[in-house]
Nucleic acid binder design. Sequence first.
DNA 1: ATGCCTGCGGTTCGCAGA
Length: 270
Amino acid sequence: MKIATWNINGVRARIENLVAWLKESDPDIVCLQEIKCQDDAFPRTEVEAAGYHVETHGQKGFNGVAILSKARPDEVNRGLPHLDDDDASDEHARFMEAVFSVEGGAIRVCTIYLPNGNPSNDPVKYPYKLKWMARLEAFARHRLALEEPLILAGDYNVIPEPHDCWDPKVWEGDALFLPATRNAFRRLENLGFTDAVRASTDTVPAYTFWDYQAGAWQKNWGIRIDHLMLSAEAADRLVSTGIEKHVRSWEKPSDHVPVAGYFNFEFFGT
DNA sequence: ATGCCTGCGGTTCGCAGA
């Protein structure tokens, strides 16, 4: 089974790319981020015609996530739960969870659009990012108790290590690379999650994002911020990963490219 | 590299992104 994550940067502006990519890449489950539309504006017909079931959690204008899958999920939950805090004021559509039946059990797949946090000296934005990361950690700890394959896939807006960007000096004060951001990501790893790309390759760099500005793609000024984080039960079934970098050179590309993991899972009954 | 693109909303500029 192939499970991919892709920040598509506007699904309506990218529908031709999405359908072309689904046909070429043939993923079984896709976690999308930044669909930038409400649920009823999602180009559902085109995606269904390509053979995918569609679950969305959108909002007007920005953010928004979706899960596309060749088999229908058994359960879908929208929004990141508030487990360790009682402030339920987060209105951003940044998280959705789906459970699928596979041979021998179930897998749980989450699509994650973690807040950017810039500018990092903003009194609201960076604290919101760190708080969201703490919420994600609480959720992850809670789900780990189920002891089932769990895949947290998405745009984390976290550069984990210096070699995950072309020039660490440039990113020093940025919300994607500040010590508190990297520490929060490491706390997630320390719960027992495996960074699928890093577990399956030593290749450096392994960028997943190139800015539209300043010819970043042509100069390979990229960063690695899209990640597949795996519970032990999922990591045990990981075969390999791939960063589908060529998609960045298509017409009207997203600034992110798809990141895929190949697993020893099959949908139940297929 | 970040006043440099791009998408979106609601009108032709402002916001958000990373």
